[in-house]
């Protein structure tokens, strides 16, 4: 269970190197490689057969909120060297409505809202998924940000977003409860799309009132 403690102001916590984060014990999230049988095309299944990918990156998560804004700090091992074809990346998933299955990336009537950070681009991208291979390039608009820090072979990324809910923005309320999932791509290993490490099922995310 990931408990989001309420603090006075999350502004300083937007920086992954902020000393304030030390006060909050991170939660370890188990991750596995997205199974080859779930890859949507024969080409991907054949070309990745026998290749290693999606190694458990030792993902650790801590989160805070101040009643208006939520900040989550995600750390994992796997900083790729520069100049690779694909970037290191992180996505966090929140259910929008209708109890979507995380492993299936949601469904038409049960979408999942993703916030995606990637090492070669500033900020965070909002995306909506309604199934495997069915995520949009642009999801619901919301006020969100991402800052990243690479240190000692580990990425430390803080993603922030406003609390609340609107349209396809996943609901996140003080005093509320929802699920959260994660995916990590090691760009240096050509990981992209479904070739990734991901948390198999929703972890419980609780926000202090």
């Amino acid at each position: 269970m990931l408990v989001t403690r309420r603090i006075k102001d999350v502004a300083a916590f937007a920086e992954p190197g902020d000393a304030g984060w030390a006060r909050f014990e991170p939660v370890r999230i188990d991750m596995i490689a997205a199974p080859l049988v779930m890859q949507p095309t024969e080409y991907i299944r054949n070309s990745w057969q026998g290749r290693e990918y999606g190694a458990d990156p030792g993902l650790e998560v801590a989160a805070v909120h101040d009643g208006l804004r939520w900040a989550v700090r995600v750390s994992w091992t796997g900083v790729s060297p520069g100049g690779t074809d694909f970037p290191d990346a992180l996505a966090l998933a929140l259910p929008v409505r209708g109890n979507p299955v995380l492993m299936l990336m949601g469904a038409e009537d049960a979408p999942i809202h993703f916030l995606r950070w990637q090492a070669n681009k500033p900020g965070v991208k909002s995306q909506l998924a309604t199934g495997i291979g069915q995520s949009t390039n642009s999801g619901p608009e919301l006020d969100c940000s991402a800052r990243a820090l690479a240190r000692d072979g580990r990425w430390h990324v803080v993603i922030t977003r406003v609390l609340g809910s609107r349209g396809d923005v996943a609901p996140l309320e003080a005093g509320g409860k929802t699920g959260i999932g994660f995916a990590v791509w090691r760009g240096g290993n050509d990981e992209r799309g479904g070739i990734k490490a991901f948390s198999i099922d929703w972890a419980e995310l609780v926000l202090d009132a």
């Binding site: 890859q39 949507p40 095309t41 024969e42 080409y43 991907i44 495997i132 291979g133 799309g193």
Partner: peptide, 10 residues
């Protein structure tokens, strides 16, 4: 087309 069949995004 091998490209079409390989694309996970259709």
């Amino acid at each position: 087309p091998a490209c079409l069949e390989a694309c996970p995004r259709k």
